[in-house]
């Protein structure tokens, strides 16, 4: 392709991605120097850039614009809304993801992607190399880019999935393992998961060049082993989470119970169903009595 003429189509997003695409035209980023121009009519374009999640009202216009684009009709979805609907997933007028309506060739994830990410993506698509001499190609410390899970630290508690603002994080319990799946093309990069993670295992890194043409690969995963119930043998809870919780109880929150750590461990290793059996309730009551006696003795000694 000698010349790339881009037509922008914004269909119900927050605007940020569209502003970033415009920003790429600024001399600093030099989209024009890659031989790219932005045109105002779809008839003159051969590349379509989509932003936004797509609404009922814009559907006809989108199909019409796609018809008018000249070959080779390359379609690039910029931003997570156009890729997966992102935070607007369950909105009633939203008809996306747009790849259901028209074929999409490339995806540039981000919320919004940095202009640097868009430029790099365009360069990759064209097969051109760009020099990253200036400082602004680097991400500053604390940049919220693609996630990374520390496999050693992650205890599989699922707090990240609970707080997630856009349902990007899934917790899938298998027969033996629990999978924490961060679907970063469905993410708002708000970093609440990072703040919420009790062991600081989940981090947002400086990785921002996330161009892909296969959405199945656009995820970060971690597996944790599930604990088997001491009575029935079924799986119910991540092993590491139990260890972490027990350590927190006997070391940080209530060091006076340290002598009982093995008994507490026995009590929590029973799945929710078995905990309701008569025997388990009796056992738990005996343990609680012991614990409260110990607590009372400690208080009296003081």
């Amino acid at each position: 392709m000698d010349k790339i003429s881009v037509y922008r189509f914004l269909s119900a997003g927050c605007n940020a991605c569209d502003v970033e695409v415009l920003e790429c035209l600024a001399p600093r980023y030099g989209l024009a120097s890659l031989g790219v121009e932005v045109v105002e009519e779809p008839e003159k374009a051969n590349v379509l850039i989509l932003t936004g999640a797509g609404t009922v009202k814009g559907r006809e216009a989108l199909l019409e614009v796609y018809e008018k684009i000249n070959p080779p009709k390359i379609v690039i979805a910029v931003g997570n809304c156009s890729i997966t609907k992102n935070i607007f997933d369950k909105g009633y007028p939203i008809i996306g993801p747009l790849n259901k309506l028209i074929p999409v060739n490339y995806y540039i994830p981000g919320c919004p992607p940095r202009p640097q990410a868009i430029i790099k993506a365009v360069a990759d698509i064209l097969g051109v190399k760009i020099e990253e001499r200036e400082e602004w190609w680097q991400t500053p410390e604390g940049f919220r880019g693609r996630h990374e899970i520390d496999r050693e630290k992650c205890i599989g508690c699922g707090a990240c999935a609970q707080i997630c603002t856009a349902d990007a994080i899934e917790v899938i319990d298998g027969p033996e393992k629990r999978i924490i799946k961060v679907n970063y093309v469905h993410c708002t990069f708000c970093a609440f998961c990072q703040d919420e993670c009790p062991t600081k295992a989940l981090k947002l890194t400086g990785a921002y060049h996330l161009l892909t043409n296969d959405l199945q690969k656009a995820r970060v995963e971690n597996e944790v082993n599930l604990l088997t119930c001491a009575i029935c043998g079924g799986t119910f809870f991540p092993e590491k989470q139990i260890d972490w919780a027990l350590k927190r109880i006997v070391e940080e929150k209530a060091p006076i119970y340290r002598d009982f750590s093995s008994e507490i461990l026995d009590a929590v290793k029973i799945c929710t169903n078995c905990r309701r059996s008569v025997e388990s309730i009796k056992k738990a009551k005996r343990l609680l009595t012991k614990l409260s006696e110990k607590a009372r003795a400690t208080v009296l000694r003081k």
Partner: peptide, 28 residues
């Protein structure tokens, strides 16, 4: 053309999660 049903979405999320939604009413 930009209607996304955000006010309805607000009532399906917690107060904390809604912060990210409020942010995406407008990108500027």
């Amino acid at each position: 053309y930009m209607h996304r049903g955000i006010e309805k979405l607000f009532t399906t999320r917690t107060y904390m999660q809604n912060l990210a939604l409020a942010e995406r009413i407008c990108g500027i």
